[in-house]
Amino acid sequence: MIDSLRKGKATEISRIQANQICVDYNGLVALYDASLELPGGCICGLVGMNGAGKSTFFKALMGFVRPSRGNILINGQSVKHAQRDQAVAYVPQNEGIDCSFPVSVWDVVMMGRYGSMDIFRIPRESDRKAVWHALERVELLDLRRRPIGELSGGQRKRAFLARAIAQRASVLLLDEPFSGVDVRTEKLMAELFIQFRNEGRTILISTHDLSHVRDFCDLVVLINKTVLAYGETSKVFTSENITMTFGGMPPNLLSGPITSEDSL
């Protein structure tokens, strides 16, 4: 089922390896000296303030912004190579798509299979199965014939997650997959990620909900323009580290969402 997983099955090969990445936007530094190494079969949380460079990190991993320094390997290969092998699926924070585009939910999820099809992109039975399963996973099967523009924000988010699932990649890069989805879907997605991890995939998730990190992230990366701390959640996700990450904010964040500004 998961061809792309076979590559790099040996857990010695890092799924994601980023060495001293530096990214700047027209001279404005967004990320410097960021290093990260993720093994196969783990869920890693990426945590940092707004503007800390989480999305930038994802874009660098996908080769969408060119790092001014550093190099990145996915499954021990160059990013381009890994992408051609369908080894990496990416769901951006904002899809930035034209929502009046004449495609159905089914069509969109099928786009996740394009890379595995021949040049004409004619779906085979296996592709249809993969799409069906992916839609089932995110509970969008009933809405598969809907035009993508006629979904709610959260449903659309699930559709794009389904596309990433249908790709059957061994590395999933999900930029804030939980923003704007309901509690039920949140739970569903968490279960899904845990299952993926057990299948040997590696999932990098950025999130602003710190309880997610404690609940199901094996590893955590704390960033603020660079990797401040990184490692097993139980060791790294301490109140001191979190305080540091959020620029001196008291770590009572951990005990629940901030309710008012008086904690400042």
């Binding site: 996908m62 080769g63 969408f64 381009k80 992408q83 051609r84 092998d85 369908q86 990496v88 699926a89 990416y90 951006p92 899809e95 930035g96 798509i97 034209d98 585009f101 495609v103 969109v108 786009m111 996740g112 394009y114 890379g115 596309r163 790709q167």
Partner: peptide, 12 residues
């Protein structure tokens, strides 16, 4: 036309 980012991320 629809989603060039995704196109790139699957190696197109």
């Amino acid at each position: 036309c629809f989603d060039p980012t995704h196109a790139r991320s699957i190696g197109i």
